[in-house]
Design a protein around this nucleic acid. Structure first.
Lengths: 74, 74
DNA sequence: CCGTTTTGTTCCCGTTCGGGAACATTTTGT
DNA sequence: ACAAAATGTTCCCGAACGGGAACAAAACGG
């Protein structure tokens, strides 16, 4: 299933859904990605200033692949 | 055209390509997104710690839509 | 070629991240 | 309803972001 990511709030929801679907707690996910529970909480709340690298790590841990689709494309 | 984004380096390349395709300088893009030229340069170089919200703003300015695709999906 | 433009990199510096821990609140299960 | 677990939130604090400006190097065009 594909989710568009227009903003950080939306991303937060996606992360939360994926995490719950896999029966993980925030603490579990934090452990898997080498971050802290605070970071996961902030991310799920849509914090704008979360660091990109860690966000990608979290997504990867959840088995979520990111794609950029160009409208103009080519 | 779709690009996968496994890490920040890859994202940097995607941003740069899209920017050039549209004939924009880093300064132009920085202006469009309300950031600084330094941020754009860092981003294109794959800086891990770039702030998520600004990254999304840059992608939007370039007409790039982001998608999360779940492997397990459903 | 050589001047112009673009980009990479460094500096200063105010602001903020995010880890860890503690506490409050909410959610969950029985 | 109640205890336990999970999550939200605050604090302390070292580390680093990123804007702006300046300079060097690289890319580009005529």
């Amino acid at each position: 299933m594909d989710h568009q990511i227009p903003n950080t709030k939306e991303l937060g929801l996606i992360v939360r859904d994926a995490r719950k679907q896999q029966g993980l707690t925030q603490e579990d996910l934090a452990g898997l990605t080498g971050t802290g529970r605070r970071f996961i909480s902030d991310l799920e709340q849509g914090k704008e200033t979360a660091e990109l690298g860690k966000v990608l790590a979290v997504l990867a841990s959840l088995g979520l692949a990111l794609f950029a689709h160009s409208k103009w494309s080519k």
